[in-house]
């Protein structure tokens, strides 16, 4: 059965957000897992918060609640390449 989470970008700083029980969270572990119908409704509701979030959409997840697609995983965990700054420190 398809399970989904709902994600969006925070308007003020563009950071990745997930729909959580209490509003939105930057932590994937807080993300609510929805059925596709519930997720679609949550995406629609997000349009009612235009000064908070931008571009909400639903993402398919596995049983651990992590996105199936590589692109969405990168969005969750950040760039897979350490910025050059971090390499220098390493």
């Amino acid at each position: 059965m398809t399970q989904q989470i709902v994600t969006a970008s925070r308007l003020a700083d563009g950071r990745v957000l997930f729909r959580a029980p209490e509003g939105w969270s930057t932590d994937i572990h807080d993300a609510l897992v929805f059925t596709p119908e519930e997720a679609a409704a949550a995406v629609t509701r997000a349009q009612g918060e235009p000064t908070r979030v931008v571009g909400a959409y639903a993402v398919d997840v596995d049983d651990a609640g992590l996105p199936l697609l590589g692109r969405e995983r990168i969005r969750v965990f950040g760039p897979t390449v350490a910025p050059y700054a971090a390499q220098l420190e390493a």
Binding site: G14, R15, V16, P50
Partner: peptide, 28 residues
């Protein structure tokens, strides 16, 4: 005006793009 909601995202997007500001995967 965008932060207070006077401008919608659809109205604001072309304005920010004119100033080189994109919204990408993790941030602006």
């Amino acid at each position: 005006r965008r932060l207070t909601g006077a401008l919608t995202e659809d109205q604001f997007r072309p304005l920010r793009l004119m100033n080189g500001l994109y919204l990408e995967m993790h941030a602006y």
